[in-house]
């Protein structure tokens, strides 16, 4: 039996992203969606707090670097997200719990595919934990 997961999704609020968000809401009702202005605005301390408080996974959905409405917004955050992953690793959390997805706002299929992969990863982490 799959236990209920606590997953947060932080999408950037590009105009055309509504379609993807609707699809995600339909397919994964357990994902909590918290819209933010831009992926570059995402405060990484919040990711650390949520994971430390027991969240299973965190996904940030942003535009591809160079494609961002705020020019270098998502590019700066890419480095910051790398640091978050390593902070998690240094303190004994699984770095796979934090994931950033870079897609064009109008894209639906690619996002759903990567989300699927992410959910599978989380499931495998959980299984590992049970086995140990």
């Amino acid at each position: 039996m799959a236990s209920k997961k606590l997953i947060y999704l932080f999408p950037c609020l590009a105009e055309k992203r509504k379609k993807v968000l609707q699809k995600i809401e339909q397919e994964y009702p357990e994902i909590k969606i918290v819209p933010i202005i831009c992926a570059g605005r995402f405060n990484t301390d919040i990711a650390l707090k949520l994971i430390n408080d027991g969240a299973d996974g965190i996904v940030v959905l942003g535009c591809e670097p160079g494609d961002c409405h705020y020019r270098e917004g998502s590019a700066i955050s890419e480095r910051r997200f790398l640091l978050v992953k390593h902070t998690l690793k240094a303190f004994g959390f699984e770095e796979e719990r934090f994931q950033a997805l870079w897609h064009k706002p109008s894209e639906v299929k690619g996002v759903m595919n990567e989300l699927n992969l992410f959910m599978e990863k989380l499931a495998s982490i959980e299984q590992k934990g049970v086995e140990e």
């Binding site: 707090k49 640091l83 902070t87």
Partner: peptide, 13 residues
């Protein structure tokens, strides 16, 4: 743990 995580995350660079 959160205190040190946030502190090292800020100071790391």
């Amino acid at each position: 743990i959160l205190y040190h995580m946030i502190r090292f995350n800020h100071v790391a660079p």
